[in-house]
Amino acid sequence: MTNRISQRVASVPPSGIRRFFDIAATMPDVISLGIGEPDFVTPDVIRRAGIASLQRGETRYTSNSGTIEMRNAVAAKLAALYGVHYDPETELLITVGVSEALYLAMTAILDPGDEVIVPQPCFVAYTAEVTFAGGIPVPIPTYVETQFQVTAQQIEAAITPRTKALLIGYPNNPTGAVMSHARMAEIAAVAQKHDLIVLSDEIYDRLVYGVEHTCVPALPGMKERTILLGGLSKNYAMTGWRIGYTAAPADLLAAMRKVHQFTIMSAPTTGQMAGVTALSDPSAEEAVHAMIASYDRRRQLIVKGLNEIGLDCFEPQGAFYAFPSVQKTGMSDEEFANGLLQEEHVAVVPGNAFGVGGDGYVRCSYATAYEKIEQALEKMHRFMQRHG
């Protein structure tokens, strides 16, 4: 039998992130600045809520949409933080992380040949999920000169009669960029003018430093055309619990729920019970603020250190990534990352893994201990002295 693999799947290369993790896993003393995962353990009050749920025997499926308690908690949090209001019955769906929410959104809205504008560098799954759903990703690069913020002019220039949606993610992975309110409002105006659906991945919404996050559906006229993707993995250090959510207009949400019903059934029950506590307990909120303060301290250390050793790095204002340029070394981002891993056992991710605009940069996660970041910077300095 020939052509056993679909062209859609075959056309998507393997994740550029996983390859470096696989190599690093064979080296016992690697300092990883690669993985995009909090190094904190899930706060105790949230863990205890999950344990209590198990002890009560809450181990069955929930509603396809998620427990009403979890949906109410998400709705209350979005209203409190951003003043945007969703009906927990018809406009909210609890998912297996944001990754599932992204898959559901693409599958629900795209027909073969529909185009989706995807500013890059971006999370590695964005263009892949567009392709898997039969759509055509239209990448547009962002640049350090505009703090890696896509502009309304760039988006409008990329629109064609086949354009159906815009997929954006701010705070951004891998750059750490945060979209200003003014620029986001300009983008919203373009989306309304051209009747685009906007998919806004706001998984890092709480992890901002000295600036405010702009919630896209909270902008005037945007709730009815925005699919908001969010979750607990990053803000609450709950990656392994696999709890995300999507908030969207009722018609879009119903289509996403239909795909969810036949694909997943429901998000993990224990994770949802813990999630209610994460979103509503004052102790959990205190833990979030403590983690943000720790990330900010590490952010300042790594940005200052990278610039001092000759790796130009703009100041990220969100998430937990620095995105320094390695162009002064004369090496490509792949060569730099490979050399640093082999010679100094420090793992970073080549920028080209994140699409156009990433060439010549590497992603350094500061979601690791302060002391390990200090050690990594010393090792990177040695590497630079040998190759500078």
Rank of each mutant, 00 (worst) to 15 (best):
R4S: 08
P14D: 05
R18M: 14
A24Q: 00
T26K: 11
V30A: 01
G36S: 12
E37C: 06
V41F: 10
R47Y: 08
A49V: 06
G50Q: 09
H85G: 03
L93Q: 12
V98R: 14
E100C: 06
T107R: 15
I109A: 02
T127I: 05
V138C: 07
T142R: 14
Y143R: 11
T146K: 13
F148S: 09
I168T: 03
P174S: 08
A185G: 15
R206L: 14
V211L: 04
A218Q: 11
L228N: 13
W241L: 01
T246C: 15
A247L: 09
A248D: 11
P249A: 14
A255W: 04
R257Y: 10
K258P: 00
V259M: 09
P268Q: 02
A274P: 03
D281A: 09
S283D: 15
A284E: 12
E285H: 15
V288M: 13
R299N: 14
Q300R: 15
L301A: 01
F314H: 14
S325W: 07
G339C: 07
G339V: 09
E343L: 09
A347N: 14
V348G: 07
V349F: 12
G355W: 13
V356W: 08
G358Q: 04
V362K: 02
E371K: 09
R382M: 04
R386S: 05
